[in-house]
Amino acid sequence: MSERLCLVVEDSPMMRQLLVFALARIKVLKVVEADDGVDALRKLTTAKFDLIITDINMPVLDGLKLVKKIRSDEVHKDVPIMIVTTEGSAEDRQRALQLGANAYITKPIQAPQVIAKVKELLKLP
């Protein structure tokens, strides 16, 4: 199976490390990390990603603005986006999905839940 490239956008190093740990269970996934939305946009110009996982509350450029920018980007407009956030209200979820996110997971996360959702988005067995 071909390698899939995933961008993890998270300002908390602890959360980022935990996500990378969880995603390491999916052998075909290669993970690139970004500290915030701006860093993510920079990294999106370096490669074609198959999946983007992003937090919402981040300095400089938050996750929702990032989703909006990605959806207007020619290269990545169709890439699945998964939100992983502490924001658990129905309105936040609705807003993120309306902006173009494909999945919405609230923190604290459980690695099996993240893995299952990533596999679903990437259509992996």
Partner: peptide
Amino acid sequence: VESELSNLASLYVATSQ
């Protein structure tokens, strides 16, 4: 086991951070 692994990963990441 997956759940336990996830918990251990959380503990490891938290401690190391």
